[in-house]
């Protein structure tokens, strides 16, 4: 199969690029022939520290089939080497927190193949055929989003059963299908718009560069609903677009 990907991202308004705490894999544009392809997005929690590093480890670790425990140990070892003031030490001891929505696409046939996804938290993937939404996972509507999702902690001991935290889903794809991986702010915006008019999917599929994403996000952050809430919450934004063909 042929896989073409492109990733777009923006930090929260008021933050620098260095303060961006989402992560995506792959981050760079990709075009390759393969039998199996893996991609992922992760959203590091604002309230924790060193979340960006945890998010990076999670998305790269998924693509490299690393064990979660090894990723957590790596995160801890990196932090341990730092000389931190009292507050940073105390905060780091709480661990870093992040979402993970990961997608594996395989190509067993000539007309298409299968996909499998696992997720914790409120980052989301969409499966699109032509310009219609076939599937969304794990989030399915705008009302499901809130500001305190269950996230994966780098102190794995804080979770009773890590494997059971992940939701999983699988399906099949056909030649020309597309997938979008989204972190929560743009995913929530998508569902709100999609429920009302249905043109939000087209808008996301037509983004071709960072400037177009910036234009969309700025408008959505500045427009407010009747209750005074912005259509898109001010947060880091990440979008990975994946096109598959046989």
């Amino acid at each position: 199969m042929k896989v073409v990907t492109k990733t777009f991202w923006l930090p929260k308004r008021g933050n620098s690029n260095e303060e961006y705490e989402d992560a995506a894999w792959p981050l760079e544009p990709t075009e390759l022939e393969c039998d199996e392809f893996k991609c992922a997005v992760s959203d590091g929690a604002t309230e924790a520290s060193f979340s960006a590093r945890w998010a990076q480890l999670l998305v790269q670790g998924f693509s490299e089939q690393a064990e979660l425990k090894d990723l957590a140990d790596k995160w801890s070892a990196e932090i341990k080497d730092l000389d931190l003031p009292w507050y940073a030490q105390e905060k780091a001891e709480s661990g870093a927190f992040a979402t993970l929505t990961a997608l594996k696409i395989t190509s067993p046939g000539t007309t298409g193949g299968t996909w499998w996804s696992k997720a914790i938290g409120d980052s989301c993937f969409l499966h699109i055929r032509d310009e219609s939404l076939l599937e969304s996972f794990p989030m399915t509507d705008a009302e499901s989003f809130n500001n305190s999702p269950l996230l994966l902690c780098s102190n794995l001991g804080k979770h009773e059963e890590v494997d059971r935290l992940f939701l999983e889903k699988e399906g099949t794809w056909l030649n020309g299908d597309r997938f979008l991986l989204l972190t929560d702010a743009i995913a929530a915006w998508f569902f709100r718009k999609h429920d009302k008019s249905g043109d939000a999917l087209k808008t996301l599929l037509n983004i071709n560069d960072q400037n177009e994403l910036l234009e969309l996000v700025n408008k959505a952050r500045n427009d407010h609903d009747e209750e005074g809430r912005p259509y898109m919450r001010n947060d880091d934004v990440t979008l990975v677009r994946v096109e598959v063909s046989t």
């Binding site: 929690a45 604002t46 500001n147 269950l150 929560d184």
Partner: peptide, 10 residues
């Protein structure tokens, strides 16, 4: 509220 707070963070 200063941003995403994990429900499992104390």
């Amino acid at each position: 509220d200063i941003g995403t707070r994990p429900s499992n963070m104390r």
